[in-house]
Design a protein around this nucleic acid. Sequence first.
DNA 1: CTGAAAGCGCTTACAG
DNA 2: CTGAAAGCGCTTACAG
Lengths: 335, 335
Amino acid sequence: MMTTIGDVARHAGVSRSTVSYALSGKRAISDETRDRIGQAIAELGFTPNAGARALKTAQTMVLGLLLQFHADEFAPAMLQYVLPVSEAARDHGYDILMVTDPHGPEAIRRIANSDMVDGIVLLDVTHADPRLPAIAEVKKPAALIGLPGGAAGVDVFDLDFGEAARMLVDHLQERGHRELVLVSPPYHVVERGGSYVWRFREGAVERAARYGIQIHPYYGESRQPAITTSVNALLDAHPKATALIVHNDATIAALPSILRDRGVRVPDDLSVVSLYSRDFGEEFSLPFTAVESAAGELGRRAVAQLVRRITKSPDAGPSLVRFVPPVLTDRGSTR
Amino acid sequence: MMTTIGDVARHAGVSRSTVSYALSGKRAISDETRDRIGQAIAELGFTPNAGARALKTAQTMVLGLLLQFHADEFAPAMLQYVLPVSEAARDHGYDILMVTDPHGPEAIRRIANSDMVDGIVLLDVTHADPRLPAIAEVKKPAALIGLPGGAAGVDVFDLDFGEAARMLVDHLQERGHRELVLVSPPYHVVERGGSYVWRFREGAVERAARYGIQIHPYYGESRQPAITTSVNALLDAHPKATALIVHNDATIAALPSILRDRGVRVPDDLSVVSLYSRDFGEEFSLPFTAVESAAGELGRRAVAQLVRRITKSPDAGPSLVRFVPPVLTDRGSTR
DNA sequence: CTGAAAGCGCTTACAG
DNA sequence: CTGAAAGCGCTTACAG
């Protein structure tokens, strides 16, 4: 039923190895033979069997992509990472095996030990990510998006959240703000080890302290109506604060409505800065000055480095930790 | 380097076939032999090579999932389909090869002809979807989410958008509304063949006509600030309309802000009904009476049927077209 | 420039 | 209850 390389060889009157070499270009083939093979392939509609090729070459040309969806969390930002990873993989000739299994470590062992993938991308890596021991154990190249606590032994890519916070505080300081409120992600993200929460928070708090700026840090919420309640409560608690730093996707998405209901105008009554990706901002129509979360660049760099690890000799240098420098986009939401 | 079934066999002092049968359970094995094999597997850490198994059995245990992201469209709703498909696949023992390649037909030929997948799920299928000829050509089982124009020769799952519209009009009619405004998806979705646009629209228009209700149908926008401008324009144009039917994700997400800016209260000044999934509504904090878009159920049913096609004999009956009946959730946004 | 043969790691008739 | 052998569809030394 399926056309094999043997069918093509027979049809073209050559050996199977010649067809294989014609396909790979790994040795010289006479023009006439190449033409006959090309014609046979066109007539029969041949595509090499990926499993057989993988078995022989020990390369699947597939990357594993591990995502996790946490209940009670704001999912729409996830897509900003998945798409660039998928597109970058295709650009490098790889397909994506997407795994959403909540049992991350087991899923990693399964796809790695059965050799379904040549390498693995982990999204949303946490401080003590339970998937990291599995990654170390399976001996496949891997790239992480998100900063783990210790040395992971694999390549790590993340936004420089500390620097992002400092840039935003600087931006407000330059405009004369002396009292700020900071809304971080929900506290359960800290408990899960989402280090971007405290890296951003510490960056903001330290920078504010250096300037003698008062800053009131809070953990926000991820769902309505708690978001509205909490934002209102902390604005009430700090009536003299002139600026709000929002490091919380669900909160920034809800903020326009909340402020409108309070009759608060941005930037006249309150300055607002945040951290989100350009696409996310567009989808939610967010008009705030913000640091780009750089999901696309992180995804592309992680894939490029992973492919390098796969294709170069097993130990192509020590593992990398790369912080993408933040970029601030001024959308006029500060005064 | 990698542990093979031969290593396990040697370690356990049995033949490779015995190990294989112990794993598959396809023939009786003495307790003692089974124990020795189990121990060997545990000590050596054996997982069968997926490529070799696929080559021999002609089954990859992988499903292809094809998504497309259209520029100038509202992406967050896509995740509501991807996740249930992925989870349902895992429940059936399958992994997901996710393909976001904008060249859909080529991507289908590639993953199907190289036998990377046992079946294919197509998301967001349109009236004259260019991917359908490729699906027909490759001779792999497939399941579509979204209704194609003609007979696809494969199983089709979609929400009954006509019925959804009729339910919403009924709901408004029962409450005495006599003049409605309908916001459909952007017109370019119609041009692309998104039949859910006109199925919903026709359902609403016909139902309204039957009741003698005036209805003003419009195509909406997918991005700000056009959304705000267009909603304001059509509310201005129909000051006597008492209810709004929104069949447009980007518009419904923006609606709370827009109405607040106009000083319009729901449902006192205006009744609003819509169509979206429960998760989507939660993420965007949407308080509107709506028909559930049933993304989860569609994904699960598509996968279940696809697996049936794969595992049962090649022709397990004629191809199906299944419309999931809409369910209305009253959130009190009508009066 | 081309071919015959071995082998990647499995599964499964065939044989006992 | 178990084993030896064939074969899935490729790639790549080896040989000419």
